[in-house]
Design a protein around this nucleic acid. Structure first.
Lengths: 200, 200
DNA sequence: GTCTATAGTGCGATAGAC
DNA sequence: GTCTATCGCACTATAGAC
């Protein structure tokens, strides 16, 4: 057994587990049970065995604790864009990127996503933050397109359209009783987007 | 002259002008000069000759003061949707709605929009709120489409796409040195959106 | 119009890892 | 010595309750 492993075990006894993780779990639980406004940061910290001050070392504010791992999330969507075929249409590049990023959200992850989404939907403050995260994703997608030479405003239009499809598909995926995979729903949504210019 | 009119005049003398309006003007000025975080609600209220308590009677929070008149804004976009031709494509209906709502923003209004936008862009808290307002507009547009019988998810996809075009065009409209009208830029952006499926 | 809870910040101290 | 995670205390401002 290496010294590092021993150290980790010692730390886990002292700190039980990664503080950040514990804070996120405690927050989701408390926000679900009592609601966002009725939960204080002190309560979350206490439930995680930490202090209020430590909470704010990990998360800039009370909302942010629900949106952990945004960097990893964003990276799943953007990594493949640089290596897409050089002559591909902007919306096709974005389509592949959205599908690639969404593969992570398997059916096993659906219950957790559902719990998280319920909390977000119930609190405008969290909905706001969610929209900002989606805007950040759109920005990252647009950046990746521009790096490939796609000019403005096409890059932004394609990126934002991709995020729209993701959000619409996401909501459908989490709809009561749904059994279809997220990528499946997204494929259909991209087709419906293209069909929008046809007469109804 | 009715008693109500006399009362209104007396009140206007007593309050100098509409309090809500003065608070908005003072807030925009202070947010521009000092920044959002460095400005307290007490300072805004004082600049408007009112108390802190009165500020919160008019606006739910410190951000909301920048987003006055959202209802009127939203209505300009949604009113014409019900009377659009019955066989029109969803995205064409939305296109007309966005252009109709945008006509309000003439070149004379551009300087004010520019000042407002600069403050919003500089402060993530305000950007968040702006995104929520845009989401609200998208929701209203989708509602209007559904009322016409456009099914989901087409209604939401079309509405969200329209708001994407509006936002992209809005940014271009406020770009340094721009002389084109907002609706002009939007017309082009809708075409570019349709062209997104073509190979680049 | 006054009172109060709590979100969020600044600065400093402690303690362990390396 | 540095770096990182934690806690402690004092403080202000927002926002809501009374």
């Amino acid at each position: 057994m290496s010294a590092t492993v021993i150290t980790m075990i010692v730390l886990m006894v002292r700190w039980e587990a990664d503080g950040r993780d514990r804070l996120q779990k405690a927050a989701l639980e408390l926000y679900t049970e009592r609601g966002f406004d009725e939960t204080t940061v002190a309560e979350i910290a206490q439930a995680a065995g930490l202090t209020e001050r430590t909470f704010f070392r990990h998360f800039a504010d009370k909302r942010e604790v629900i949106f952990g791992g945004q960097e990893a999330f964003q990276e799943r969507f953007t990594t493949d864009i640089a290596t897409a075929p050089p002559d591909a249409a902007p919306l096709d590049i974005i389509g592949s990127a959205v599908l690639a990023g969404s593969e992570f959200f398997t059916m096993e992850r659906r219950p957790h996503s559902l719990r998280r989404q319920a909390v977000i939907a119930a609190h405008p403050e969290l909905r706001e933050r969610d929209l900002l995260k989606m805007a950040s994703l759109a920005g990252a997608l647009a950046d990746a397109l521009r790096a490939r030479g796609v000019p403005e405003p096409s890059a932004t239009l394609a990126a934002e359209s991709g995020v729209v499809v993701f959000r619409v598909a996401w909501d459908q995926w989490l709809t009561d009783g749904n059994t279809r995979s997220l990528v499946d729903i997204e494929r259909e949504a991209f087709q419906q987007l293209a069909a929008l210019t046809e007469r109804g």
